[in-house]
């Protein structure tokens, strides 16, 4: 073994410039060794901190592991699908699932429409200072959610918040956004769209710039209006980019956690509890097995969403 691994290294060191290349077989071996060597640091960290946890989580989801069992692993039992059946009878989990789906179903299209509108406006050629707008719209994407929460909690403060102050100017008595069971989740949805559309805007802009200009020229010659050009040229050409954006945003939004965590703590009355938040709470209660099963349900939802996208992409090509 050791001779096999040192031999190519020695040959490599001995090879001087201009010498004919190594025999094919040795070269292959050398490449394989280099490949493994270069992959090794990543692979070790990847396996220990990512791949292994994914597997452990799956195994855990079929056990009744609790935080108190960690010192005494023998007390852990396999319980089959118990966690999963319990999950779908857990009213809090179902509430969290409905909240999360509602957030995704409204939030993803809202984010995409905002992003597409901003990208189209900036790509129309009519606007100057494009960098200013691009950077401005991107600010929330790079900012810490904790800082954003400080600002948004103030904006939405029922008494002194800017939003209700603006509403007061037009004679409307604004509601207490984050303390109303019907308004808290919509408020967080708008906030998430506000926070994330800048990322999609940049991706859509790149997609728009890749649409061949002569398509628009031809459409203009045919007398198409701007709106018709958008409907019949831009949207079809942008389809793959839109799908990509939709899935990336969908995967992110399905994992909704930070917004309710920093803004509402899941309240009022669980109206902003998300699946990820529910998992986090179960982790906090020490119900590790149960938390793992909920996380795998979320995982399956994400895989299903990605599968739908691949289907849609294949249909086109």
């Amino acid at each position: 073994m050791s001779s096999a691994s040192t031999a190519p290294a020695r040959t490599a060191a001995a090879t001087s410039p201009g010498r004919p290349a190594l025999p094919v077989r040795r070269q292959r071996l050398r490449q394989a060794l280099t490949g493994w060597l270069f992959s090794a640091p990543f692979t070790v960290l990847f396996v220990v901190f990512m791949a292994l946890p994914v597997v452990v989580s799956l195994v855990m989801s079929f056990t009744d592991l609790r935080s108190t069992d960690l010192r005494n692993p023998l007390a852990v039992n396999f319980v089959g699908l118990d966690n999963y059946t319990r999950l779908f009878a857990d009213r809090l989990f179902l509430r969290a699932a409905v909240n999360t789906l509602g957030f995704v179903v409204v939030g993803v299209p809202l984010t995409m429409v905002l992003a597409l509108a901003a990208a189209s406006a900036l790509n129309s050629g009519l606007v100057r200072f494009r960098t200013l707008f691009r950077v401005g719209f991107y600010l929330p994407v790079v900012s810490s959610i904790v800082a954003i929460a400080v600002v948004w909690r103030f904006l939405l403060d029922p008494e002194i918040g800017l939003v209700n102050n603006l509403l007061r100017l037009v004679g409307i008595d604004g509601p207490s956004w984050l303390y109303d069971t019907n308004l808290a989740l919509p408020s967080l949805t708008v906030m998430a769209a506000w926070r994330n559309f800048g990322f999609l805007m940049v991706i859509f802009l790149a997609g728009l710039q890749a649409v061949p200009a002569d398509l628009y020229e031809a459409a203009t010659l045919d007398g198409a209006t701007r709106w018709q050009q958008f409907r019949n040229v831009t949207l079809p050409m942008l389809r793959p980019t839109l799908l990509f954006g939709g899935v990336v945003t969908g995967i992110g939004f399905l994992q909704l956690f930070e917004e309710p965590f920093v803004m509402t703590q899941g309240g009022p009355l669980s109206s902003t509890l998300s699946v990820s938040f529910h998992i986090y709470n179960q982790f906090g209660f020490g119900n590790y097995g149960y938390a793992a099963s909920a996380s795998y349900v979320l995982f399956l939802a994400i895989v299903a969403l990605s599968a739908v996208q691949f289907r849609l992409l294949r249909e086109r090509s």
């Binding site: 220990v48 901190f49 994914v54 452990v56 855990m60 994992q255 996380s295 979320l298 995982f299 990605s306």
Partner: peptide, 16 residues
Amino acid sequence: MLMVPGMVTFVPQFVL
């Protein structure tokens, strides 16, 4: 791994 939500690895990572 790109599709795995953070919550799946969260608990095992913490235990580890």
